[in-house]
């Protein structure tokens, strides 16, 4: 990635008024400076940063844990940092959160019976929409194609074509 791209992507998003979390992969916010979290390895730091972006704050429901300033988000960040430092696997931490707050904390909900509609609904709607559009277009095409010209129209067509030919000659 060239430096120019690295700078321009977050700037562009910010200029468009998009939430910075969209730019999380290319920089974005880090944990608030008021609560420095230290990790033994860089891998742990990376896992912590990824987790607090993927888990939702249940108090401010449209923010993830890193964006939220709610005291609970603060506590949960600290708890996750502790678990990461204790060597907990990423899915162990996610299970810990889901056991307490439910699937709601996941910004990527799991695929199961109650979420099939959520996962496949948009695709199904697209297929249905395309089907309806296709049917309408198909019908219109056959209707237009099958309508023959009446004798008057044939006559007018011949005259117009004839006149056109005459001008050119």
């Amino acid at each position: 990635m060239r430096p120019l791209h690295f700078l321009s992507a977050p700037l562009l998003l910010a200029a468009l008024g998009l939430p910075l979390s969209a730019a999380a992969q290319s920089g974005g916010p880090t944990a608030p400076p008021s609560e420095p979290m230290t990790f033994e390895t860089e891998e742990q730091e990376v896992r912590y940063q990824r987790l607090i972006r993927e888990l939702r704050c249940t108090v401010c429901q449209n923010q993830n844990l890193i964006e939220s300033n709610a005291p609970l988000a603060n506590d949960l960040r600290r708890q996750i940092a502790l678990m990461v430092n204790d060597g907990a696997e990423t899915n162990e931490i996610i299970d810990y959160m889901v056991a307490r707050y439910g699937d709601f904390v996941l910004f990527r909900p799991p695929m199961k019976g109650t979420t099939y509609l959520l996962w496949f609904g948009p695709g199904a709607m697209l297929v249905i929409g395309l089907g309806v559009l296709g049917t309408i277009l198909w019908r219109r095409r056959t209707q237009v194609g099958s309508a023959p010209l009446s004798e008057d129209e044939e006559e007018r067509l011949r005259r117009i074509l004839g006149e056109g030919g005459g001008d050119k000659a």
Partner: peptide, 13 residues
């Protein structure tokens, strides 16, 4: 005081 038991009970409001 720390709110850790609260977290175990899934308290958020």
């Amino acid at each position: 005081e720390s709110g850790l038991v609260g977290i175990d009970y899934g308290v958020y409001a």
